[in-house]
Design a binder for these strands. Structure first.
Lengths: 188, 188
DNA sequence: CGCCGAGTTGAACTGAATCAAGAAACGTGG
DNA sequence: CCACGTTTCTTGATTCAGTTCAACTCGGCG
């Protein structure tokens, strides 16, 4: 099995040969240019993505401003989780900040795999658990922390984003204005 | 089946008779007084709780101050998810704000049920998904919002908490000081 | 009754936002 | 490959939301 997507997921939980084959069969590899929109606002998101190589950004509009909600880099998962899981439209948009190679799996395919294979259902549970832990982590970093602390948290956790993501987009990711982030950065 | 815990979980996903019986067999009903500590800080949390009736608060210490992380009321789940899912110690403490009736299930039992029954694994996945959606919701309410907006969000979402949770604990839940919450409340 | 923790209210202070003007970086077309 | 225009980033001055510190009020409980 030399499908990087399946290989990556197997790290979370072992899959039988059959499950691996079925998973590989429903996943599609996409080579996309920078700026490509993976998920549009206001629609039910039908796909979940795995970033083999590249970088995506999830954001939404709040009072005319873009608020960066999430950033997914190489080896991570990207998706409008609220829409994907709840099957409701959501305002989040996902687009690529770099030319990227991503794998896409549809909601339907995933449901089919969950129903068919117990080990896929387990993998799904573990992936969602992992996502929950990540979000809780990010939540903690935002909760009752100063702008400086939030910046330092990012520096400690995902320093590569500082190079790869434009400052303005990082600022709202960290819950501050671009000016504040610029000033904080200047003091280090 | 008149086990309220099993009944509540069945709302998320149907369970076979056997699964329901196995789940009922590993869950324990506890009647606890106000102030009882469900999860201690610094230990691996081995139990997840379902609040049949009552109210729990998850908090941790940050620079000597208590920060309220989560509140779980009747019909909801309480647990130190970071510790429970990652199997690592965590600083979060859970205690009861009211005399409560809760159901406890151990990590081991749950793993056993997951392995044994596909439909339990599915239920687990859906429960974690539901938790992820809730957390994302709370995260959005905190992200790039003013103190007033956060208060209004709570008012819209879980107004009952305003009556049942002491102001000081609510304030840090909303990411503000008790004084600020008091002032905001006065203006409405 | 009178204490004590929880909540309120006031005044001063401060971290971060806003408004505004430059400086650098970028990419596009000549 | 350079020149221009556009966007992104920086820097400064001002304003404002929210914190801090402190005093006072209220309600429950011994």
């Amino acid at each position: 099995m030399q499908n990087p997507f399946v290989t990556a997921l197997t790290q979370f939980s072992l899959l039988s040969e059959v499950s691996q084959q079925d998973l590989a069969a429903v996943s599609r590899r996409l080579v996309l240019e920078k700026g490509h929109v993976l998920v549009q606002a206001g629609k039910v998101s039908d796909y979940i993505y795995f970033i083999e190589q590249g970088l995506s950004r999830t954001y939404y509009l709040k009072e005319g401003r873009e608020v960066t909600d999430w950033l997914s880099a190489d080896g991570e998962i990207a998706g409008s989780i609220v829409s994907f899981l709840s099957r409701q439209p959501d305002g989040r948009i996902i687009h690529l900040l770099e030319p990227s190679v991503v794998w896409a799996v549809s909601y339907q395919s995933l449901e089919m795999l969950y129903a068919r294979h117990h080990d896929m259902e387990r993998l799904g549970r573990l992936l969602v658990s992992h996502g929950l832990l990540q979000l809780q982590h990010r939540f903690d970093a935002l909760h009752m922390a100063t702008a400086l602390e939030r910046y330092q948290g990012l520096l400690a956790n995902k320093p590569s984003l500082l190079q790869r993501v434009p400052l303005g987009m990082l600022a709202s990711y960290l819950g501050m204005t671009p000016e504040t982030l610029s000033r904080i950065r200047a003091q280090v």
